[in-house]
Amino acid sequence: MRMRRLAGFALSLALVLAGAGPASAAERLKLATTTSTANSGLLKYLHPVFEKKYGAAIGTIAVGTGQALRLGRNGDVDVVLVHARAAEDKFVADGHGVNRRDVMYNDYIVAGPKKDPAGVRGMRDAVAALKKVAEKKAPWFSRGDDSGTHKMELQLWKEAGLGKPSGGWYRALGQGMGNTLIAADEKGAYTLADRGTYIALSSAKKIGLGIAIEGDKKLFNPYGVIAVSPKKHPHVKHELAMKYVNFLVSPEGQKLIGSFQKGGKVLFFPSAGGAAGN
């Protein structure tokens, strides 16, 4: 008797599980992108419009730019939306991606404690400011995760003549942008952040860090979208990936990007109008 009851239980369990999974009839586009676009809420604002228009679902995997490009290189995603121009160009040159298009930009800022222990608030020259942080050995938190922001930070340190900094004042966290800002806020450290994530967290009062450095031309942060090459990876959903690329750079997509605000501030500025894709 008992055996039959147990078997019945197992069977009905299996049926429930098989039948009632999340609806997945729609085609699913896999997008690897950065934590900055996902954590700021931009994609959540954009994607429902695309999904409705094309009857497709977008699966967003939010990682650092480096890992996003690796997922594209492995053919594990269909399209990438990232921000590290040199690495993007190499990705396309190596044949892993096609149709790179400029999508939008924002800029990096250096966020730091309001007390400003390194005395760098208001400096415009980012490289000089970083030198000063290093001299004072003021705490600095690095993403340390091979993301676009991390690459930019390392570039700045290189220009400051410090190579890859080390010492107790410099910590590489290996975390996303949100986590790094929260950790820097807890520990009173400086960190390089994209303005979008910084505003999203600070306007929601999740962090009390202020902007220490902004406005340097070097801190310009452009985002590009690239479809994974269907030649290298015949299984990718290339047609849908191109619909996504074209949606982002279309007047409609660009207008949506420009209208996305947090705390009354625009986080990303559309930029597809100027540069043509390659």
Partner: peptide, 23 residues
Amino acid sequence: GGNIEGYTRTLTTAIALESMKGE
């Protein structure tokens, strides 16, 4: 799973994400 919303996002990966967003 890749923490894809509505598809592979579990309660534990959602918690990891919320802590990242300061929520």
